[in-house]
Structures are given as C-alpha cells and as structure tokens.
Simulated scan of single mutants.
Amino acid sequence: MFIQTEPTPNNDSLKFIPGEPVMGQGSAEFLDARQAMKSPLAKTLFQIDGIGGVFFGPDFITISKEPTAEWQLMKPDIYAAIMDHFSSGQPIVFNADELAASDTAIHEDDSEEVQMIKELLDTRIRPAIQEDGGDIEYCGFENGIVQLKLKGSCRGCDSSVITLKNGIENMLMHYIPEVEGVEQIIGEDEAVALQEFDKLEQKLGEK
C-alpha cells in the first residue's frame, strides 16, 4: 500500500490518502480516545503521542496533531497504523450505518429552502472542503441563518472562518434569497477545550 499525504490549510492537520475507500460515503470524526472506541483504526491512531483528532472522509483520513507535536516523529507510526488496519480486514467503524447517516439527506418535512441548502452543501460545497481534508455538517436553518459544524482539518483552522463567511455564506445567499447568513456551531467538547485554552492564555498573560 502506498499512502500519499497532502497538506491542508491547517498546519496541524494532514490528509492521508491510502488509495482505497475509507468511509465510502459519509464521514466520521473522533476528537478523543473515548470517541475513538467506535473505530478500530481511530483507537490505534489515538495511541500515538500527539494525536489530537481523527477524521474519516470517503477516501481519505485527516489527522490533526497537538500544536507541540512534530509530524516527523509521528508519521512513521501513522503510516504503520493505517497499513496494518487495511491489511487486517477490520471495519473502519463498528457501526458504519449510523455514522454514515447523511446530515444532508432530504426528508419529507424539509422546507423547499432547506432542501436547496442541503443540495448545495452536498453537490457544490462539501466536495471543495473535502479536497482540503475537512468536511461540514448541516445542523439546521433558523431565522434565515444556516447552522454548520466544521470538521476535520477545518476545525481550529484560522482560514476556516473566512471560508465559512466568504465562500459558503456567499454561495448560499446567492442561490437562496431566504438565507441571510451562516453560523458556526461549536460542540460541547470544543467549547470546553476553548475555555481551557482561554484560561491558559490568561494565566500566561498575568505572568
């Protein structure tokens, strides 16, 4: 197996391309070792020092490291873990159907606007973001605001906010007049991490 790597806009995230289907369809993200218990490969990757996040796309794996970790030291172990997994015959995730349930699937009770938003996200926006090793998750549409969650390399990337506002927001507003803006949704795990980071910054600033 020859695994290619590609940089992403986030210096702390790398895209690994094994040359074989990963999720096939849908995506899955694991932000700590506890979440990684749902995936044999993610579980193994989180045993490597410095791993901060694992994201599975259709045909790629985006791995995010902690800011102090070094890719040079981590890459050999990451390559070995990926190759060992694909040769083992184990599934990528234990419940693939649940994880692959698409956030952009059209439902009967979706309004015309929501159907158009999901269609644009799926056909125009998601492929471009996956090129950079990330993904988006549709979370809702309320009072003219489309709620999205950034995943993979997009998470914690400085340019992701610009992408969200300039790229995604402009496209959705252009095609769907009812859309007035885009809002980034931050999960509980991310919110806690951000709070801890802010506390650390405050302590360092006081010294």
Results as ranks from 00 to 15, higher is better:
Met116Thr: 10
Val114Lys: 09
Phe46Asp: 00
His107Tyr: 14
Ile63Pro: 04
Asp103Ala: 14
Ala69Asn: 13
Pro76Ser: 04
Pro91Gly: 06
Glu70Gln: 13
Gln72Ala: 14
Ile92Arg: 13
Lys75Phe: 15
Ile61Glu: 11
Ile106Asp: 08
Leu73Thr: 10
Gly53Gln: 10
Phe56Cys: 11
Ser111Gln: 02
Asp103Phe: 04
Gly53Arg: 08
Ala81Gly: 09
Gln90Thr: 02
Phe55Gln: 07
Glu98Gln: 15
Ile117Cys: 05
Met116Ser: 07
Ile92Pro: 07
Pro76Gln: 04
Asp59Arg: 10
Asp122Arg: 12
Asp84Arg: 10
Gln47Gly: 15
Gln72Pro: 01
Glu113Lys: 04
Ala81Pro: 03
Phe60Lys: 01
Phe86Gly: 09
Val114Gln: 09
Ile63Glu: 01
Leu120Ser: 05
Ala96Asp: 05
Pro76Tyr: 00
Gly53Thr: 02
Ala96Gly: 06
Gly52Thr: 04
Gln90Leu: 13
Ser102Ile: 07
Pro58Met: 15
Tyr79Met: 13
Met74Thr: 03
Glu70Ile: 10
Asp122Pro: 02
Thr68Pro: 01
Ala105Lys: 05
Ile92Thr: 12
Phe60Ser: 10
Phe60Asp: 07
Glu66Pro: 02
Ile63Phe: 04
Ile117Val: 10
Ala81Val: 12
Leu73Ile: 01
Ser111Tyr: 14
Glu108Met: 06
Ala80Gly: 03
Ile61Tyr: 06
Asp97Val: 12
Asp59Leu: 03
Glu119Asn: 10
Ala96Met: 11
Pro58Lys: 15
Ile51Asp: 05
Glu98Trp: 10
Lys65Thr: 12
Phe94Asn: 14
Asp110Glu: 02
Ile78Ser: 05
Asp77Phe: 09
Ile51Phe: 03
Met74Pro: 07
Met116Ile: 00
Ala80Lys: 11
Ile78Gln: 05
Asp109Ser: 11
Ala105Cys: 00
Val54Pro: 03
Asn95Arg: 14
Asp110Thr: 00
Ala69His: 09
Gly53Pro: 00
Ala105Trp: 00
Pro91Lys: 11
His85Met: 12
Ile78Gly: 01
Phe60Tyr: 15
Asn95Val: 10
Lys118Leu: 04
Asp109Arg: 05
Val114Leu: 07
Gln115Arg: 09
Phe56Ser: 08
Glu113His: 09
Phe56Leu: 11
Gly57His: 02
Val114Met: 08
Glu98Asn: 06
Val54Tyr: 05
Asp59Asn: 12
Phe55Leu: 03
Leu99Arg: 03
Ile82Gln: 03
Pro76Val: 01
Ala101Asn: 13
Thr68Gly: 02
Asp49Arg: 01
Glu98Val: 09
Ile63Val: 15
Leu120Phe: 06
Gly53Asn: 13
Glu70Ser: 12
Gln90Ala: 13
Phe56Tyr: 15
Ser88Asp: 09
Pro76Trp: 02
Ser87Arg: 13
Ala101Asp: 08
Pro91Glu: 06
Lys65Met: 13
Glu112Asn: 06
His85Gly: 13
Phe86Cys: 04
His85Val: 05
Ile106Glu: 09
Ala80Pro: 00
